[in-house]
């Protein structure tokens, strides 16, 4: 009797432990789902070579640039142009401007997000200031470039894509 109990209890416990692991596994699964479906607006990253392989189309799509600052930042952070017309399949350049208004050196991390979500997976960047942290001198400023390409497969009913960056103070700063 006791043995049979141990077997059932052991199996159940195993299930419980496995499900605890599954909880953590949901993190990478979620990332993959986001990448595949564009859920949560995370943008893709491609190499220049891949980008150049695309064929430009005649269609015009408006790309709109938006900037936000998360709490606790004395910043000026804004796109250099409000919006631009781009052709899917063509490589485009844009830039944001950031200025540290405080008298302290600060490291910032920009997080990108694309709306509508359906467009996110067609929005690919070859180069972006969000790929790395950005360090700023006291009162320092810089222009931060970004190069992107819109996949020609972008759904036809999407005529406007918003690219948003939020500036966070980098979390590992003391």
């Amino acid at each position: 009797m006791a043995n049979r109990h141990t077997v059932v209890a052991g199996k159940s416990l195993l299930l419980a432990v496995a499900m605890f692991g599954f909880g953590y596994l949901m993190v990478p699964i979620y990332d993959i789902i986001c990448e595949v479906t564009g859920l949560n607006g995370k943008t893709g990253r491609v190499s220049i070579a891949e980008a150049q392989a695309e064929v430009a189309t005649d269609r015009l799509v408006t790309v709109e640039f938006v900037a936000s600052i998360n709490q606790g930042g004395s910043w000026i952070f804004k796109p250099q142009v409000q919006e631009m017309q781009v052709k899917p399949g063509e490589l485009n350049h844009a830039a944001y401007y950031a200025e540290n208004l405080s008298n302290m050196p600060v490291v910032a991390q920009a997080t990108p997000s694309v709306s509508p979500q359906a467009a996110a997976k067609y929005f690919n960047k070859t180069e972006c200031f969000c790929f790395t942290r950005q360090a700023f001198e006291p009162k320092g400023s810089k222009e931060m470039p970004l190069t992107f390409i819109i996949d020609p497969d972008l759904p036809i009913n999407v005529d406007r894509v918003t690219l948003s960056y939020t500036f966070f103070r980098s979390p590992d700063q003391s």
């Binding site: 499900m19 599954f22 909880g23 949901m26």
Partner: peptide
């Protein structure tokens, strides 16, 4: 048995987000 551990995982992540970076 299948869902409580998932919840435990989620709150553990909250805890490490809060205290362990």
């Amino acid at each position: 048995i299948a869902t409580i551990p998932v919840f435990a995982g989620a709150v553990t992540m909250l805890l490490t987000d809060r205290y362990f970076g």
